[in-house]
Nucleic acid binder design. Structure first.
Ligand SMILES: [Mn+2]
Ligand SMILES: [Mn+2]
Ligand SMILES: [Zn+2]
Ligand SMILES: [Zn+2]
Lengths: 137, 137
DNA sequence: ATTCAATTTTAGAATAATTCTAATTTTGTA
DNA sequence: TACAAAATTAGAATTATTCTAAAATTGAAT
C-alpha cells in the first residue's frame, strides 16, 4: 500500500471523500508539523497542482476541522494556523524566529472552579517570548 | 476632582498625553468590562465625538498596549478584543450568547518544564463552550 | 498674544485574510 | 453513455486593520 493510499484510507475513515486535493493537503499538514497557514499550504501545493485554488484550501480545512481531522489555532491574531495534532496541547511562539513549539501540558488539568456548570468544548493556551536558540545568539 | 480628571491623571502617570479622545476611550474600556472590539469602541464614542475616526481608536489602543494600559486578546480569531485587566487571567467565550467571561486562574502557575531556558513574555488561555445561563434555557 | 514646530487626529485609500458566487470539472451510478 | 451530485475553480466581495497625507490641536518660546 502506498503512502497516498494510507492517507486516503485515513480520510475515508473520518468520513471525507479523498480527492487528489484533499489527499495532498492532508499529506502536507502531516509531514510538515509547522502549524501552517492557508497560504503556506497553497504556496507549497500549487507547484504540484497548478490549478489549485485558495478556496479549495479553505474549503478543505473547514471540512477537516468539522470532521475532527485538524484544529485551528490563532496566535497571530490576523492569520489562522492549522494543527493536525488533536491531542490537547498548547503552543509557544518565538517573537524572533516565529517558530511555534508544541507544549504537551493539558490545560484541562487546571480544573477551574469558575467553570462549574459550564460546558467546555475547546481549550487553548499559548505563550509568546524568545525561544532558547534565539536567546543563545 | 472629576472622574475625567482622575482618568486623565492615570494616563499621564503611564506616560500618555491625555487628549479628549484618549480619555473617552480609556473611560469606555474601564466602564464596560466587555472586552470590546475596536468597532465597539468606535460605535459607542462616535455619538459623543462625531469627528472620531477608527484610525484614532486603533492608534490609541496600540499606544495603550505599548504603555501597558491594555492588552489584546484573540478568541475570535478575526477580530481583536481589548482588555483593560492586566492581571494574568484567562477567558471563556460562550458560543451561544457570545459573552466573554474572565477566569482568575494564572497560567504561569502551570510551570511547564518544556519552557526551561525560554523567555516567556506573554501567556494566554481561553475556553469555548456554553455558559451556565445558556445551558439553563 | 503670536509664532511655529511637534503631536494628534482625521478621512479615505490601500492592504490582506477569508468568504462568497456562479461556472466548470470530476465523480459515481444507472 | 447519461446524468445528478459533489468538488473545484477564478475571481469578485467582504471586512478588519493599516497606511497616507492633510488638517487640527497643543504647548513652549518669543
Ligand atoms: Mn500544535
Ligand atoms: Mn479579561
Ligand atoms: Zn526563536
Ligand atoms: Zn451564553
Amino acid at each position: 500500500m502506498t503512502n497516498s493510499e494510507i492517507l486516503s484510507n485515513h480520510l475515508k475513515n473520518q468520513g471525507v471523500k479523498p480527492s487528489i486535493q484533499r489527499i495532498k493537503i492532508y499529506e502536507f499538514i502531516r509531514n510538515h508539523a509547522i502549524h501552517p497557514t492557508a497560504d503556506d499550504i497553497y504556496n507549497h501545493l500549487v507547484k504540484e497542482i497548478p490549478t489549485l485554488s485558495v478556496a479549495t484550501v479553505y474549503n478543505t480545512m473547514h471540512l477537516f476541522e468539522q470532521k475532527g481531522i485538524v484544529r485551528t489555532i490563532s496566535i497571530d491574531n490576523h492569520q489562522t494556523r492549522f494543527d493536525w495534532n488533536m491531542t490537547p496541547h498548547g503552543h509557544f511562539q518565538c517573537k524572533v524566529c516565529g517558530t511555534i513549539y508544541d507544549l504537551e501540558a493539558n490545560l484541562n488539568q487546571m480544573n477551574i472552579s469558575e467553570l462549574d456548570g459550564f460546558q467546555v468544548d475547546e481549550s487553548h493556551y499559548y505563550f509568546k517570548g524568545l525561544c532558547k536558540s534565539c536567546i543563545n545568539k
